[in-house]
């Protein structure tokens, strides 16, 4: 077997992303849904960083680091998103004492 290649990282991150996406769609606990979203965002980070690592250098010899910069932004925004998300979950819990998305059912078609 050869060493670890770009493909390995991409497959791993695709699997992580799918686990997150399926988990988000299947699980009904809003905290688990938040965790699934974090998983998806981290899969994206892994993809970005892996692509950046294997990116061929420019003709000048320098490697651009857009992928890594992107990953930093994703990390920062994910933190802000988690803060707002948890605040909303908490606020719903205060009013209705529920955390499951099934129970958030006051409004119907």
């Amino acid at each position: 077997m050869g060493s670890i290649q770009l493909t390995h990282y991409l497959v791993l991150s695709a699997v992580l992303f799918s686990v997150g996406a399926v988990g988000f769609l299947v699980r009904r606990n809003s905290l688990v849904a938040l965790m699934c979203i974090e998983l998806m965002l981290n899969a994206v980070n892994l993809t970005l960083v892996a692509f950046n690592r294997w990116m061929p250098a420019n003709p000048g010899g320098a490697v651009a680091h857009h992928g890594q910069v992107f990953a930093f932004f994703v990390i920062a925004v994910a933190a802000a998103e988690a803060a707002v998300g948890l605040a909303i979950v908490l606020s719903l819990y205060r009013v209705r004492k529920v955390v499951r998305t099934d129970d958030a059912n006051l409004m119907k078609e």
């Binding site: 979950v89 006051l106 409004m107």
Partner: peptide, 8 residues
């Protein structure tokens, strides 16, 4: 509660 649900 509706506001919180919609936001969630």
């Amino acid at each position: 509660a509706r506001s919180q649900e919609g936001a969630l």
